[in-house]
Simulated assay, not measured.
Amino acid sequence: MMIQRLLLLPLAAAALLLSGCGKKDTQYVTTIVQTAADGLNLQAVTDLATKVKTAEEFEKKLNEKGNQINNLDLDEDSKVDYIKVTEINQDGQHGFSLTTELSAEENEEQELCVIQFEQGADKQVTVQTHGNSHIYGNNHYYHHRTSMTDVLLWSYLISAHRPYYSPWGYNRYPSYYSSYSPRSSAAYNNHHKAQPYAKNIQSSTKPAVQKPIKSPNFNKTASKIKAPLKNPTASQKSFQKRNPSKTLSSRKGFGSKSSSSRYGSSSSSRSRSSFGGGK
């Protein structure tokens, strides 16, 4: 027994030495985890959709700097992207598709989300916002159920009118609009976390409406997006590989400190990806 113990001691020491060497050689990588999804808070969008009276007013409020709802900068030109509103009115279903144009080039328009209003038998209205899968990841929903009288848009939606289709786009803006720079991600997120809708509007991975609406813009994807995406298409991945986001930064080294950018900061970890999970 004594001989066995003596033989085991050198082996244990060697194991400790190798373990120590492994820790010493560990290379830590820190990567910013902010994505394009952090530029448009869908709870704020859902809340705003209950407080405006027309589609045109909805578009105006979405893009007003003072409302602090739109902080998107998909092409990273240091200007917040203008959001277009397309009204959807099909087979008794009502809603909106939100898109943005990244350039004057054809096929450079990106759908951001789809908002739907559905009336139940109890005269309650479900307001649901479905985030675009490329930006927010798969199955990303926010919803709120409330009285018809609390949805100021409802009377507009069910009235006889010509559905609104935004006439604006890239470098074609209404006279009241002026471009502005994005806020820091930390300031933007902190603002929305402090609002009542952060608790009142629920998230889910399944639709809260009975008949999900089909967006006329469902196939609109822009390839030239620099901001990190949760679920990019092949063309978006290819473009981002050639044109990496300036909001991503990483430091490699032994026990390196956290890195940061204008979009926020992250803590050190062995390896963290900026493209996983939902918002």
Rank of each mutant, 00 (worst) to 15 (best):
L6P: 00
L9W: 04
L18V: 08
G20I: 08
Q27T: 02
Q27L: 11
V29C: 00
Q34D: 06
Q34L: 00
T35F: 00
A36D: 01
A49K: 00
V52R: 00
E56Q: 08
K61H: 03
N71P: 00
S78A: 07
I83Y: 06
I88A: 03
Q90F: 10
D91C: 05
D91A: 15
H94I: 04
G95A: 13
L102A: 14
N107D: 15
E108S: 14
E109H: 07
E111R: 15
F117P: 02
Q119R: 14
A121R: 07
K123Q: 14
V125H: 09
V127D: 03
G131P: 09
I135V: 15
Y142W: 12
T146M: 07
M148N: 03
T149A: 12
T149S: 13
V151L: 06
L153R: 03
W154A: 10
A160W: 01
R162C: 04
P167S: 04
W168P: 02
Y177N: 04
Y180L: 12
R183Q: 12
S185I: 10
A187M: 10
H191I: 12
A194C: 09
P196C: 02
A198G: 05
S203Y: 11
S203C: 08
T205A: 11
A208F: 03
P216Q: 07
N217W: 01
T221Y: 09
A222M: 04
S223P: 05
I225F: 03
A227R: 01
P228R: 05
L229M: 10
P232Q: 11
T233W: 04
K237P: 05
R242W: 06
L248T: 14
R251F: 10
F254M: 14
S258E: 11
